[in-house]
Design a protein around this nucleic acid. Structure first.
Length: 599
DNA sequence: CGGTGTTGCGCC
DNA sequence: AAAGGGCGCAACACCG
C-alpha cells in the first residue's frame, strides 16, 4: 500500500524549522500538529486536521505493508516517529531525494532545485502559499495540504518513470531512517561541560579572530606579518593553520609568539562548543540527519545544523555520543577503499597486489621507492610510502605532493624525495596514468562518466579553451607558462554550495579520476552497509544508525547480538558487488559504548 | 539590517 | 607535462 503523507505544523518567526534542527522543532513545547494531507494508492486525497483522527487513522494501517511517500521525509518521518507512537513504514520514498538522484543522472535540468515549489511546475502544478494557508487554517489549510499531496503523488510517478535502481531507492530509505528513527544516546554532563562558555574568554577570542587585532599583537612582538593571495585574488594575512607563515609562528623561537599563534588558532574554531550545544538542544535519542546524494560523486553530507560526518577525532564529542543503555556500537570501516579502487579501476595488478601485503605502505616504500626489503623501511620512509599511495593516485605533481604533506602534516620533505615518490608511483603502477587519460577522454567526449555500478557522473556545460597555463617544470624547477587546452564545466545547482549560482570549475584528468574513484568507492560501501543493515532489519538484531563515507555504525544489544553484528559487518566489508569482481576489499570492525571508543 | 560571498576548519 | 577532491557550518567581510 502506498501512502502519501504531508504533515502541517504550527510555526512563527521565532519558532520554525529555519531556526532550529528538525528534532528540536518537533520536540519543542510549542509543537502543534495542525493536520496531515494523505493519499492512499489511487484513491482521492484527504486531510485530517485532528490529532485524534490521525492517531485513529494511523492505527488502522498495517505499517509493515506501507510504502510511505513524502517530500523531505526527514520531517514527516520524524513527526510520525516522535508524535504517533514510533511508527515507521516498510519503505520510505522521498520525492526530494528522488529528485536529487534524477538531477545527478541528468534526467532533470542541472538548474533545478529540489523544493516542492520548484518541482511542482514539472507536473503542471503550482504549490500553494504556506504562510497564508497556515494563517487561515480550517478549510483553506486542508485544501493546501491536499494540494501538496497531489503534487507529491504526481512527482512520484514522474520521478519513478526515470527508473531509479532498487539499490539507490534502498540507500534513500536508509538515509530517511537514520534521520527519523533516532537511537543514539548522549552524555549530557559531558556535553554540558563542552558547551560551557566563559563570556570573557569568548570576547577575547572574538578579538583574536580579527586580523587587524592580531596584526597589532604580532607587531608588538617584533613580527612582520606575511600576506597571501586568496583564490579570489584578495590579499590576506597568512594566518590559516596550513599557511607557511602561521606554521612558522607556531614553531617560533620566541615563546610569546608561539603562545600568540596557539591562541589565535584556538580561537578559530568553536566547533566543539557549538556542536555540543546543538546535541543538547536536540536531545536524546539523537538522530543522524544525513542528506542522500549531497555531493556530485554521490556521497552523503550533513544537514540540519549539525554535520554528523565531521566530528573531531580528538576531544569530547565522539565520547558524548553513545549506544543506549544495554547496547553497543559496532563500527566498521572499509580500509583504504579509495586507494584500492584506483588500482582496480586502472586494472593495475601491482597496485592491487601491494594492497594484499601486510603493510601496503611499507611495501610501496621498500619495493617501489627506496629499493629495499619492506622490513628495512624506516618510519620516515614508510610515511612517504603512505602519503604517496594515498595521494598520488589522482595525477598530482611532485610539487603538489610536497605541498600536500606540508599543509596536512606540517612537514617539509625535500622536492627530490617527492619526485622519487612521484616517479615510483607512476612507473611502478604504470596502468594508473593510462587510466587517468582514458577516463578524462571519456568524460570530455561524452560529458559524463558511467561508473561500474551503472550510475553516472555528469559534467554539464562542458567547454574548452586554449589559454596560458602556468606550472612548475620538473626538469628546471621553475615556473613555465604554455598555451594549453583547458576544460571547465558548471556543476548542477544542487551541488554548487549555498550560493544561488551554479559553480563553474576547471576539469582535468585529476578531477575526473578522483570523482570516478570517490563515486565507485561510495557505491561499494553503500552496497556493503545496506546489506548489513538489511540483515539487521530482517533479524531484528541490529540497526544501522550512522555512516561517514567509508564507515558504518550499527547498534545492537550487548552480548550475542553485538558479536553477531560485528561478524556480519566484517563479512560484508569484504564482499564485492557483482560489478566489482577482482577488487580486494578489507574491513575493520570495532565495538564500543561511545563512538569515541571505536578507534 | 539582512542577504550573499569568502574564508577557515572539522571530517573522509 | 598538469592544478588533490568531496562536503557543512560558523564567523567575518562586504554590499545594498
Amino acid at each position: 500500500m502506498r501512502l502519501v503523507i504531508d504533515f502541517e505544523s504550527y510555526y512563527d518567526t521565532e519558532y520554525s524549522l529555519g531556526k532550529m534542527p528538525t528534532h528540536q522543532y518537533i520536540r519543542d513545547p510549542r509543537w502543534k500538529c495542525l493536520g496531515c494531507g494523505l493519499k492512499i494508492d489511487d484513491e482521492p486525497p484527504f486531510y485530517l486536521a485532528g490529532v485524534g483522527e490521525l492517531e485513529y487513522f494511523f492505527g488502522t494501517l498495517n505499517w509493515s505493508l506501507v510504502t510511505a511517500v513524502a517530500h523531505n521525509a526527514q520531517f514527516d518521518g520524524s513527526v510520525l516517529w516522535e508524535h504517533f507512537g514510533k511508527r515507521a513504514p516498510r519503505t520510505w520514498i522521498d520525492t526530494m531525494l528522488l529528485a536529487r538522484w534524477a538531477i545527478s543522472q541528468g534526467h532533470l535540468s542541472p538548474d533545478m532545485t529540489t523544493s516542492l515549489w520548484a518541482l511542482a511546475p514539472l507536473v503542471g502544478m503550482q504549490k500553494g502559499d504556506t504562510a497564508a494557508a497556515v494563517a487561515a487554517g480550517g478549510q483553506q489549510l486542508a485544501d493546501y495540504g491536499v494540494d501538496d499531496v497531489i503534487i507529491e503523488d504526481k512527482l512520484l510517478r514522474m520521478l519513478m518513470g526515470f527508473k531509479p535502481p532498487r539499490d539507490e531507492l534502498m540507500y534513500m530509505d536508509q538515509h530517511v531512517r537514520m534521520a527519523t528513527e533516532p537511537v543514539l544516546d548522549i552524555d549530557v554532563p559531558m556535553l554540558e561541560e563542552a558547551a560551557k562558555s566563559d563570556p570573557r574568554e569568548e570576547a577575547f577570542k572574538k578579538i583574536l579572530r580579527k586580523d587587524a587585532n592580531f596584526k597589532v599583537l604580532l607587531e608588538k612582538n617584533g613580527i612582520v606579518p606575511e600576506y597571501k593571495t586568496t583564490p579570489t585574488g584578495r590579499t590576506k594575512m597568512a594566518l590559516a593553520k596550513t599557511d607557511v607563515f602561521m606554521q612558522s609562528l607556531t614553531k617560533h623561537p620566541n615563546i610569546k609568539v608561539r603562545r600568540l599563534a596557539e591562541m589565535r588558532l584556538g580561537s578559530a574554531s568553536n566547533l566543539v562548543r557549538t556542536r555540543a550545544q546543538r546535541f543538547l538542544n536536540v536531545g536524546a535519542p539523537l538522530p543522524v540527519p544525513l542528506l542522500y546524494y549531497a555531493a556530485g560523486p554521490g556521497r552523503s553530507g550533513g544537514q540540519d545544523s549539525s554535520n554528523m560526518q565531521n566530528l573531531p577525532r580528538k576531544g569530547p564529542l565522539r565520547h558524548a555520543v553513545k549506544a543506549p543503555e544495554g547496547h553497543k556500537l559496532i563500527v566498521g570501516d572499509s580500509r583504504q577503499v579509495e586507494a584500492r579502487t584506483v588500482g582496480w579501476r586502472a586494472g593495475d595488478k601491482k597496485l592491487l597486489t601491494a594492497f594484499g601485503t601486510t603493510d601496503p605502505y611499507r611495501t610501496f616504500a621498500g619495493h617501489f621507492m627506496y629499493g629495499k626489503a619492506p622490513e628495512d623501511v624506516t618510519a620516515d620512509e614508510r610515511f612517504m610510502g603512505k602519503a604517496g599511495m594515498l595521494g598520488l593516485g589522482f595525477a598530482q605533481s611532485a610539487y603538489g605532493f610536497q605541498e600536500g604533506i606540508r599543509a596536512k602534516d606540517d612537514k617539509h620533505v625535500p622536492i627530490e624525495t617527492c619526485k622519487l615518490g612521484h616517479k615510483a608511483y607512476r612507473e611502478g603502477f604504470d596502468q594508473v596514468p593510462k587510466w587517468w587519460k582514458a577516463v578524462f577522454q571519456n568524460a570530455i567526449r561524452d560529458g559524463e562518466l558511467t561508473l561500474p555500478s551503472g550510475r553516472k557522473l555528469i559534467y554539464p556545460d562542458l567547454t574548452s579553451e586554449v589559454k596560458p597555463f602556468t606550472f612548475m617544470d620538473a626538469e628546471t624547477d621553475t615556473w613555465v607558462t604554455k598555451d594549453m587546452r583547458q576544460y571547465e564545466y558548471t556543476r548542477p545547482k544542487i551541488f554548487s554550495g549555498r550560493g544561488s549560482q551554479r559553480k563553474t570549475v576547471n576539469f582535468w584528468k585529476g578531477l575526473a579520476t578522483e570523482n570516478d574513484t570517490q563515486a565507485t568507492a561510495r557505491d561499494i560501501v553503500f552496497w556493503q552497509l545496506r546489506h548489513c543493515a538489511d540483515e539487521g532489519r530482517s533479524t531484528g538484531k541490529w540497526k544501522m544508525v550512522w555512516m561517514t563515507h567509508d564507515e558504518g555504525v550499527f547498534v545492537a544489544k550487548e552480548g550475542e547480538d553485538t558479536t553477531l553484528c560485528a561478524e556480519r559487518l566484517a563479512y560484508w566489508l569484504t564482499q564485492n558487488p557483482s560489478w566489482a569482481h577482482g577488487l580486494p576489499l578489507e574491513g575493520e570492525v570495532k565495538i564500543g559504548q561511545a563512538y569515541g571508543d571505536c578507534k
